[in-house]
Nucleic acid binder design. Structure first.
Length: 569
RNA sequence: GCGCCCAUCGUCUAUCGGUUAGGACUCCAGGUUUUCAUCCUGGCAAGAGGGGUUCGACUCCCCUUGGGCGUGCCA
């Protein structure tokens, strides 16, 4: 538990968020661990917090998988929070899709599911708390509009560290403004044009504005309290240079290592829209605190948010959780999956007949590896091996062929009773596969399961169930249109007509025909295969013929001799 | 533009200063299977470029290039 000790000592300080305790008391797990209000265990609590949009993105589910794996490895809790504040998209159907995807991959959730839409009061209370503490202020955008509530990046918190003295050349034509909302100024572009910049007040500790002679036009410190309180603001003209003590926000990411971001590059953020609704940042932080999340494991598109979220935690009086940012999964072009990319949703993989365990296993291998040469790992092995320090920080792209290969290994191990229904469903996609003989189907499954990579491969089983065959032209040319083949097959047909039609007997018959017709041993097999199955690949020939049955084999041999073989005698 | 992050075979990855840079997928060749597939053996294939630090660098540092993310009263 190397990362728990120092970086994360949650002191059970959820007190400022009154509503969170309400939530906890409904959570049996919490009651068990911390029922008397004291901390007995530093149990890991992670969460998956998707927006239910009707589709679960593959990158999202990978984040869920890593969270789940981490929780199970640590013996902690894996929680689900449905961020359903977008009422238009968050339909019951979308939520059901989400739960189905998770159930399919066996991502079992601990405790009660939290629905963010029901947390509005808590979010508003948190906003109110910040406002009362002077950590938030209202600001009007337009004259006629209602004011939005901004979170003021705190002046000091323990997550800041000093970088050192900094100076910035400023465009003198654009005045520098100092207000509760931060510092606004313009720097010079390469061509000398003004480029607007702004940052929060806290980013400019010890700020001094200098003119071209080096004289100090304004110093922040004397009026700091008045500015912070919104009782004073300043506009300073002809500033050429700003000097200040640069500070940065720091956190130790469990996969990316030490992360820093200069405070002067961070802006105050809206937490309550002018219509009064809470924004993502507030809701997210608030709920993570309420669920007592200890580790946030999410996509690295959130790293920038983290710096501001940490400030929010501190302002709310809550110790921030530990963070682990996962690399993105990109498409075959190396670009992030967009909504237009097909095959990027969990449901698609399910529909395409991938085995959930195979997909689960494959997804763990994207951005993570156990460190030895194992690739096919069972759930238990994955849980045992999974640690965040082995997560890579470079993006990775999916390789469908490798997934298919892995899938094949999983399918081969499935009990026949599990394999059959799925194979049946795939077979039903084919016209000839809707109604098949049950006994034959079972036998064919038994014969071909081990060589099925993905369920749609069952389309190649056509020759067992249908007589409308499409002969592989290459196979016909290579194995049927050869001198003497027609005669040999014709002879075989005669002998098969009245001998036992069991695999071993069939094999013996074939060998005998080969000898009679002076065909090298085994060389007739592929010709027979093409004649009776129309393809060059398949299972063992003798078993295949036995399953096909005498009638079909004889008919097809007749057809091959008549229509496909070279007539050269 | 600025900020943050990333960089080993085509792809997924191993390597935590000293290796003939290993494995897997794909592809190719051979073997086993008197057939097909599996399987086995072998092969093709990588440290983006340039500077440092060091006896020694894929590994640490800097620069460049390339890519991603962020820069919303989206999440």
């Amino acid at each position: 538990m190397w990362y728990l000790g120092e970086t994360h000592t949650r002191g059970g300080r959820c007190a400022p968020l009154s509503s969170c305790c309400l939530f906890f008391h409904r959570d049996d797990r919490f009651r068990r661990l911390w029922g008397d209000g004291s901390i007995k265990s530093m149990s890991v609590r992670v969460r998956f917090a998707p927006s239910p949009t009707g589709n679960v993105h593959i990158g999202n589910i990978r984040a869920a998988i890593f969270n789940w794996l981490f929780a199970r490895h640590e013996g902690g809790a894996f929680l689900l929070r449905v961020e359903d504040t977008d009422l238009e998209r968050s339909t019951d159907e979308a939520k059901a899709t989400l739960r189905e995807a998770m159930a399919w991959l066996k991502l079992d959730v601990d405790g009660e599911v939290m629905y963010q839409s029901q947390r509005r009061e808590a979010h508003l209370a948190a906003a109110e708390q910040l406002k009362a503490a002077g950590a938030a202020y209202t600001l009007q955008r337009g004259k006629d509009e209602e004011a939005a509530l901004f979170f003021q990046i705190p002046w000091t918190i323990e997550a800041y560290e000093t970088v050192g003295p900094a100076s910035l050349d400023v465009h003198p034509a654009v005045p520098v403004t100092i207000s509760r909302g931060g510092i606004q100024y313009a720097v010079l572009s390469k061509k000398g044009k003004p480029v607007d910049e702004s940052g929060c007040l806290a980013g400019f500790k010890g700020l001094r504005l200098l003119d071209s002679t080096g004289e100090c036009l304004y110093a922040l410190e004397p009026s700091l309290e008045a500015v912070q309180a919104g009782q004073a603001d300043f506009t300073v003209e002809k500033v050429v240079r700003m000097e200040f003590e640069q500070r940065q926000v720091v956190f130790d990411d469990l996969v990316k290592g030490r992360m820093t971001k200069p405070l002067d590059g961070i802006k105050d953020l809206v937490i309550l829209r002018s219509n009064g609704s809470p924004v993502f940042h507030l809701a997210n932080v608030c709920d993570d605190a309420a669920q007592a999340i200890t580790h946030i494991i999410r996509g690295d598109d959130h790293v920038e948010n983290t710096f501001r979220h940490i400030a929010l935690y501190h302002a709310l009086g809550v110790t921030p959780p530990a963070y682990a940012h996962l690399p993105m999964i990109v498409n075959a072009q190396g670009k992030p999956y967009s909504k237009r990319d097909g095959d990027a949703y969990v449901g698609d993989f399910q529909a395409q007949g991938f085995d959930p365990e195979a997909l689960f296993n494959y997804l763990t291998l994207l951005g993570w590896a156990p460190g030895d040469d194992r690739e096919k790992l069972s759930r238990d092995e994955l849980v045992a091996a999974f640690t965040l320090d082995r997560v890579r920080s470079a993006p990775s792209q999916m390789d469908l062929r490798k997934l298919a290969h892995l899938n094949g290994q999983y399918l081969a191990e499935l009990p026949l009773e599990t394999f059959m229904p799925a194979a049946r469903a795939a077979l039903a996609q084919q016209e000839w596969g809707r109604e098949v003989d049950e006994a034959l189907f079972r036998s064919v499954c038994a014969l071909l399961q081990s060589r099925t990579q993905v369920y749609p491969d069952v389309a190649t089983w056509c020759y067992f169930f249908s007589d409308e065959l499409t002969y592989d032209p290459k196979g016909v040319r290579k194995f049927l249109q050869r001198e003497g083949i027609g005669q040999a097959l014709a002879a075989l047909r005669e002998r098969l007509a009245d001998e036992s039609f069991e695999a071993a007997a069939i094999e013996a018959t074939i060998r005998a025909v080969e000898i009679e017709h002076e065909v090298p041993e085994g060389k007739l097999n592929q010709s027979i295969r093409v004649a009776v199955t129309a393809t060059t690949i398949g299972a063992g020939l003798y078993e295949t013929m036995e399953l096909l049955g005498r009638e079909r084999v004889l008919t097809r041999l007749d057809y091959a001799v008549e229509a496909l073989c070279t007539r050269d005698e």
